[in-house]
Design a binder for these strands. Sequence first.
DNA 1: CTGACGAACTTTTTT
DNA 2: AGTTCGTCAG
Length: 724
Amino acid sequence: MDVTTIIEPLNDAQRQAVTAPSGALLILAGAGSGKTRVLVHRIAWQIEVEGLSPQSILAVTFTNKAAREMRSRIETLLNVSAHSMWIGTFHGLAHRLLRRHATEAGLPDTFQIMDTADQLRLIKRVLSALNYDEAKWPAKQVLWHINAQKDEGIRARHTAETGDIYQRTMLKFYRAYEDLCERSGLVDFAELLLRVHELWRDNPAILAHYQQRFQQVHVDEFQDTNTIQYAWLRLLTQDANNLFVVGDDDQSIYGWRGAKIENIYAFQRHYPDHQVIKLEQNYRSSGNILTAANKIIAHNSGRMGKELWTQSGIGEPILLYVAFNEQDEAHFVIERIRAWADKGGARNSIAILYRSNAQSRQFEERLMQAAIPYRVYGGLRFFDRAEIKTTLAYLRLLANRHDDASFERIINTPTRGIGAKALDDIRTLAREQNSSLWSAAIALLQSGQQAARAANALNGFLLLIKQLGDQTAPLALCEKVKIVIEKTGLIAFYEKDKDNKGEEKVENLEELVNAAKHFETASLPDGEENLTELDRFLSHAALESGDMQADAFEDCVQLMTLHSAKGLEFKLVFLVGLEEGLFPSQQSVDDIARLEEERRLCYVGITRAMEQLYLTYSESRQLYGRESYPRPSRFLREIPADTIQEVRMRAQVQRPVASVNIPAKPALLASINQFKTGQKVRHEKFGVGVILQTEGEGKHERVQVKFPEGIKWLMLSYAKLEAV
DNA sequence: CTGACGAACTTTTTT
DNA sequence: AGTTCGTCAG
């Protein structure tokens, strides 16, 4: 293979990164600077030029999608199968390692992975078993606490029984939860990572084996790694310094779920001989967009420092639209989308980006009205759907009778007359004899203490599972699935459910059979040879919740949160709802660290745009059922004026009734002389109040008024205020 | 076990 | 406002 294919398409900085000698490398890759390309070409370089064998390559990503993309791009570039390379997510790779070394890691061979919903179910069980009131100890909070501990590498046994009641109680939950997981053979997502860390830490021989095997370790989105993930990487590479990480401190937007930007600084301390290479040339956006992005992010402190630039010229100005209300905002956006499409622009090159999911509705309604096809990201994924999870729970119980999370899920789904009472008895007995629910159910039935009807129902369930087990044992995976959905009555259950969703669920179940069939042929066991096909399928389902299929290739306008937009690019981007309290979100405004994360989110949003960026905000917005009059986002002020142009549109939407008869001019005049701090005013809805402060001018002038029911910001040109 | 009513919420999401 | 979740009666 010709080496020029690898280095020819690269710019200087990229080439420097790709061809750097082995060692600790930190690639600071700005948005749109070709970071995946660098990663892919680096790996190709190591194989083709440095002569590394594909087996000695490890590449870690955060999402399955990123892993797939990297693998396929390497295959395209090298024109060989990348099968023998370890490319995957942290969780996927951890899973693989644990399957290989289950015994050393202290896990049963057939351990299964549970997702967050399963985990929550188990925690609820722990809480009720320990007799704690869920109102006072919300399961969600306990889950969060346990995961946070695991992400920091802390086990229950590492924590001393000191501290306040809260700490001690949480510790108690943590301990009980660990016991339950152990007994059920279940492992949550955080546990996968923690276990591998412990496996390597406590088994020098195993660690040495992998240290030797993986001559080069590559990490994508390094700024998103949490404590345990970084600790994992360090164990693997600390002696050889063979760690190649790519990341962007300015695009760290997952601090709230444990990601540590500090890992970037820690990297520089831990690998003293490291080299830093910055990728600052941007191949995505026009000059104005980059200028705005650079200026905004410059307001953050403690950055590594990076300035994006482009050869492609200034481009169109960024356009700002100030809407009366959220309907007007949506209307404006849809008009511009229509204009873009009329000029022949593809709809799937358009994105509407918002801070919170709730904002999508206005846009969906308008798009629907305008008959423009659209797609909202972030819905339920395939393996997360209730009917799918239920079927999987049956399969899991077939694979392992002591899987309590699954047992609970299906014991009465579809309903078979096993009510809360019976389930409670089973739980109590399980607790008393310290056994799984399955064993307890058998014991309960044998004790003969139940009412005839309850005993009958329970017997029916146990029998069903036993029969299914016997019947499906010799069958192929997809036949197993087929039998399960038929014999359990799930199909019949959903067919009866005419509430317009039943039909879809039946289709999904059939799709699951398909997925199983596909899995039989597609999956090559590796590191999982000792597992049954069913076990492997179940792990696959847990680790890969499955992108939403279909629609993806249709020519649709894309609607998504700023978080889901990371890594994507669109010719035309609408960044909407730029208002204080929304973006930055209310919860972030009085904490500098969180505010800076919001700013990075804004940076991410802006840098999604290739050709045209629209920013919008609304002067009034319905929020939690109340009318609010938010101030424009501070981020707007951080964008240089010469890159922005305000769009004036004639009102095509009715103004709110309260303001329809107020001509703009008089309101403006009135605002100059009439209202001052300390003055009393009357509002038709809020009553009499006192002005606390004023701000802005002309159409944008607003006053803060203290009313009996609270303090409000009011837009003078819309709120009908009378002097008292 | 279903359905209805009322209370309590309400940033972001992957594995 | 709209949704979800838990409790209560039937």
